[in-house]
């Protein structure tokens, strides 16, 4: 019993040390962004701010506020659109057996595993041609399309858990493809939509490659703005950290509130349907 208690203590000790290491960046970001410009010194990076203040955060916000708007304007519609398409695809692929269904699923799923560099040149040309280069609507389309594979996978796995005989009961009760979707599948899809939406929102919000390739100021999402601040000539660590903090807040809030669903999205690509 004593050995067991020692073991237990050891486990908690290791867990706590690991937690501290994982939370270290949060500490650094918080203490640095609460310092004023003058108070930041390389030598006292780890110290708590002597006079905590919001001046750095205010300075960061002044530079980021417009990009925040861009990111929300981008992430919300793209999340909704790609989730809706994913739900429709997942329903078709999980509940209806038609010839070639598995092959089509493969074709859709492989879109998840491409390096986006391999589509970037044509993408820019096309966006430019249709006049959507350097616009948020253009980015909405891009994120919707490249979100289809993962949302389809999420919904296909989700719908696989709804028993087929419930659908058959609905058929016998007198409804068809869309009736079943509307009256049976959709009401049961709430947590599927939560998983899909959280995942997509996080991915789109955090994306950098499409944002930096397809937009110029002032149409850039926050991730690009953050890199611009970080890469500017005068390195103000306090403003950088405050910006990093601001950029992370929306996705972190979602994670803290609905973490369980985030993890389900995280595992979607790894766990079979």
């Amino acid at each position: 019993m004593a050995a067991r208690r020692v073991n237990q203590t050891l486990i908690y000790l290791v867990l706590i040390i690991a937690s501290i290491l994982y939370l270290l960046p949060v500490y650094v970001v918080l203490v640095t962004s609460l310092k004023s410009n003058a108070a930041v010194s390389l030598a006292h990076m780890w110290n708590l701010p002597a006079h905590p203040g919001l001046s750095s955060i205010r300075a960061a916000w002044a530079q980021l506020s417009q990009n925040f708007g861009n990111s929300f304007y981008l992430a919300i519609p793209a999340t909704l659109l790609s989730s809706a398409l994913g739900a429709i695809n997942g329903y078709a692929l999980s509940k209806w057996r038609f010839r070639g269904a598995n092959a089509l699923f493969f074709v859709i799923l492989m879109g998840l595993f491409i390096p986006y560099q391999s589509v970037l040149i044509p993408l820019l040309r096309v966006m430019d041609t249709i006049g959507l280069y350097n616009s948020i609507p253009g980015l909405i389309i891009v994120h919707t399309v490249y979100g289809i594979p993962i949302t389809t996978l999420i919904f296909r796995n989700f719908y696989a858990n709804i028993p087929d005989d419930v659908l058959e009961a609905a058929k016998i009760d007198g409804t068809g493809y869309w009736g079943i979707f509307r009256y049976v599948i959709l009401p049961l899809s709430v947590s599927g939509f939560v998983v899909s939406a959280i995942w997509q929102f996080t991915q789109i919000w955090n994306n950098f490659l499409f944002a930096v390739s397809l937009t110029n100021p002032p149409n850039q999402p926050v991730t690009v703005a953050l890199v611009n601040i970080a890469g500017s000539q005068t390195i103000q660590w306090n403003v950088q950290m405050a910006s990093a903090l601001l950029v992370s807040i929306p996705t972190l809030v979602v994670y803290i509130v609905l973490g369980k669903y985030f993890v389900r999205g995280l595992l979607a690509g790894a766990v079979k349907g």
Partner: peptide, 28 residues
Amino acid sequence: PKDRDIAMVFQNYALYPHMTVYENMAFG
């Protein structure tokens, strides 16, 4: 099925989980 004028009772009942007993019966 809907045009055959039949009703079916399933082995696992296949009740609509999101509907009440009343709604389950009334749905068809």
